[in-house]
């Protein structure tokens, strides 16, 4: 089969099959809309609320990306320090793991009280807090497991630590970094939605979901879920595209 056709066709086909199964499940059980909406109910919801969907998607999207950018900057810096210094690594790991183990939903009221009314800021913060951990850990591991020979070929020539970092350590860690970024991007997305849904007077797709719940508009709720899934897929593949550009060398040719 043609590779281009396969790359697009197979995922599209699997999505179509999924929608058909969903529709059949609802139809076979005879569930009314207030139990579970079926895919055929969704177009109507999109048609009626399309402006809200566009606005909500944009709000969710930019706050997720902003949080993710913060996570990348902070995670890279933290990972660098931890990767190069054993002491920092030993000191920070328990703290980080502990922080990561806290369910982030519990932080929503904490953030809300700390920064009252700053809804955008709170949301970006949550996206950041939930997603920096995998980035920091993967960069730290990538740097600390760099084979000493790689360092030595430049160190023996008197290269500075910074030079070694830019020329060798950082590019060599990029595959791990993008692996972590794929995890982080979905996490950041979840963080954004969490705040949008939990906090009163929220914005974004999460708030739209909440209003669907308040008004018992179940097709709207499911339509939001699908929109979230689509947005998540878009973000994920944006990261994949960046990975191709910056770390494509790590991909082996198909054999």
């Amino acid at each position: 089969m043609n590779t281009a056709l396969r790359k697009v066709g197979v995922p599209v086909l699997s999505i179509l099959i999924f929608l058909v199964l969903w529709e059949l499940l609802v139809w076979a059980n005879g569930w009314p809309n207030y139990v579970m909406a079926s895919p055929s109910d969704l177009p109507e919801a999109y048609a009626r609320f399309w402006e809200l969907f566009l606005l909500g998607s944009w709000q969710t999207l930019w706050r997720t990306v902003a949080g993710l950018l913060l996570a990348v900057i902070f995670g890279l810096a933290l990972g660098m320090v931890m990767g190069f210094s054993r002491i920092v690594r030993d000191g920070l790991y328990p703290l980080l793991v502990g922080f990561n183990a806290i369910p982030k939903a519990t932080l929503v009221p904490v953030l809300a009280l700390l920064f009252i009314g700053q809804h955008n800021f709170n949301t970006v913060m949550m996206a950041f807090l939930i997603s920096f951990f995998p980035i920091a850990v993967s960069v730290a591991i990538g740097l600390s497991t760099l084979e000493p020979e790689y360092r030595d070929i430049l160190r023996a020539l008197g290269a500075s630590r910074m030079t070694i970092f830019w020329k060798i350590a950082l590019p060599k860690t990029l595959p791990e970094f993008f692996g972590a970024l794929k995890v982080a991007v979905t996490l950041a997305f979840i963080g954004t939605n969490l705040v949008e849904i939990v906090s009163p007077h929220g914005r974004g797709l999460g708030a739209l979901f909440l209003s669907g719940q308040t008004n018992s508009n179940y097709p709207l709720m499911f339509a939001v879920l699908i929109a979230l899934a689509v947005l998540g897929i878009v973000l994920y593949y944006a990261v994949v595209a960046m990975e191709r550009i910056f770390a494509g060398w790590a991909e082996r040719a198909e054999t």
């Binding site: 020979e149 030595d152 070929i153 023996a156 060599k172 060398w249 790590a250």
Partner: peptide, 13 residues
């Protein structure tokens, strides 16, 4: 000085 090891340590990128 120049160094070479058992592992060629070439930069894949």
């Amino acid at each position: 000085v120049g160094m070479a090891f058992q592992n060629p340590v070439l930069l894949e990128w």
